[in-house]
C-alpha cells in the first residue's frame, strides 16, 4: 500500500514533467515557425541583394550608438524630473503641487512628436537653437519624466501608512522618515518601472529621426530612399530594434531577479 502510493506519486510527477517539457517544445516550435515564415516572406517577396545589404547594414547599425546615447541620457533626465515631480505631487504646498501637476498634465496631454518638433523647429523662432541631439534628449526626457512622475508617486504612496506612523512615533521628522524609511522601500517598487521605460524609450527615440538625428531609423530611411529599397532597410532597422529590445529586456530581468535575490540572500545570510 505504502509502496504503491510512492510509485503513484513518482509516476504523477514524471507525467507532469513530461507535459511541461512538451509544452516548452511546442512553444519554441511555434516561435521558430513564425520566424521562418517572416524570413520566407522577406526572401520571396524581395530580390535579396546581398551586396546592398552588406553595404546598408553597417551604415544603419552605426546608428545604435546614437540611439543608445539618446535613450540613456533621456532616461537619466526623466528619472531626475520624475523624482522632483513626485515630491512636488506629494507636497503639502499648494503652489509646488500645482507646478508638478501642471507639468505632468501638459507633457502627458500633448503628442511626443509635437513636443520634439517644438524643441527643434519652434524654439529657434524665439532665438533658442539647440543641437538635434539635445532636442531629442530634452523632448524625450521631459515627456517620459511626466509619465514617470506618476509612477514614482504611486511607488512612494504604495509604502504602507504604518511605516510612516512607526517612523513618526519614533520621533523622526518628515524628511528623515522619507530619506531613511519611505524612499528605500519605494525604490524597490520603482526600479522595474524605470527598466520598462528604458526599453520603451529605445523605440521612441526613433522619433528623433524627424529632427535629422542620424540614429537607426534616419539611416535606414536615408540609404533606403536613395536606391528605392526602403523595405529592405526598414526590415534591417526593425531587426536591430528587436534585438536591442530582447537584449535589454533580458538585462532588465536579470537586474530584477538580482534585486529580489538580494533581499532573499540578505535574509538568509543573517
Amino acid at each position: 500500500m505504502h509502496i504503491d502510493a510512492e510509485r503513484l506519486a513518482k509516476a504523477v510527477a514524471k507525467d507532469e514533467a513530461r507535459r511541461a517539457a512538451r509544452w516548452q517544445m511546442r512553444f519554441r516550435l511555434g516561435w521558430a515557425a513564425l520566424l521562418s515564415m517572416l524570413a520566407a516572406f522577406v526572401f520571396l517577396s524581395l530580390n535579396v541583394e546581398i551586396d546592398f545589404i552588406a553595404r546598408a547594414t553597417p551604415f544603419i547599425v552605426e546608428g545604435i550608438w546614437i540611439t543608445l546615447a539618446v535613450s540613456s541620457a533621456s532616461i537619466v533626465l526623466a528619472t531626475l524630473l520624475a523624482a522632483i515631480g513626485a515630491l512636488g505631487r506629494l507636497s503639502s504646498n499648494a503652489v509646488v503641487n500645482a507646478l508638478a501637476s501642471f507639468y505632468v498634465s501638459f507633457f502627458r496631454g500633448t503628442p511626443l512628436i509635437l513636443q520634439l518638433l517644438v524643441w527643434y523647429l519652434a524654439l529657434p523662432q524665439v532665438g533658442i537653437i539647440l543641437d538635434p541631439i539635445f532636442c531629442a534628449i530634452g523632448a524625450l526626457g521631459m515627456n517620459y519624466g511626466a509619465y514617470m512622475t506618476e509612477i514614482f508617486r504611486a511607488g512612494i504612496q504604495a509604502v504602507p501608512l504604518g511605516q510612516r506612523e512607526a517612523a513618526a512615533a519614533l520621533g523622526m521628522s518628515g524628511s528623515t522618515a522619507f530619506r531613511r524609511i519611505i524612499a528605500p522601500q519605494a525604490f524597490r517598487i520603482i526600479v522595474p518601472a524605470i527598466g520598462n521605460d528604458f526599453v520603451a524609450m529605445l523605440k521612441d527615440s526613433a522619433l528623433a529621426s524627424t529632427v535629422a538625428l542620424h540614429e537607426i531609423v534616419w539611416r535606414a530611411r536615408n540609404i533606403g530612399q536613395k536606391e528605392f529599397k526602403t523595405l529592405q532597410t526598414f526590415i534591417i532597422a526593425a531587426m536591430i530594434y528587436w534585438t536591442l529590445t530582447i537584449v535589454f529586456t533580458a538585462v532588465q530581468n536579470r537586474i530584477e531577479s538580482r534585486l529580489a535575490a538580494g533581499d532573499r540572500n540578505k535574509a538568509v545570510k543573517g
Partner: peptide, 22 residues
C-alpha cells in the same frame, strides 16, 4: 510633538517593523 514622541515608545497592532532593515 517630536519631543513627546521621543519620550513615548509605541508598539503597534501590526508591528510596523521596517522591512528593508535588519
Amino acid at each position: 510633538i517630536r519631543e513627546v514622541r521621543m519620550r513615548a515608545g509605541m508598539v503597534f497592532q501590526e508591528f510596523n517593523l521596517f522591512p528593508h532593515l535588519s
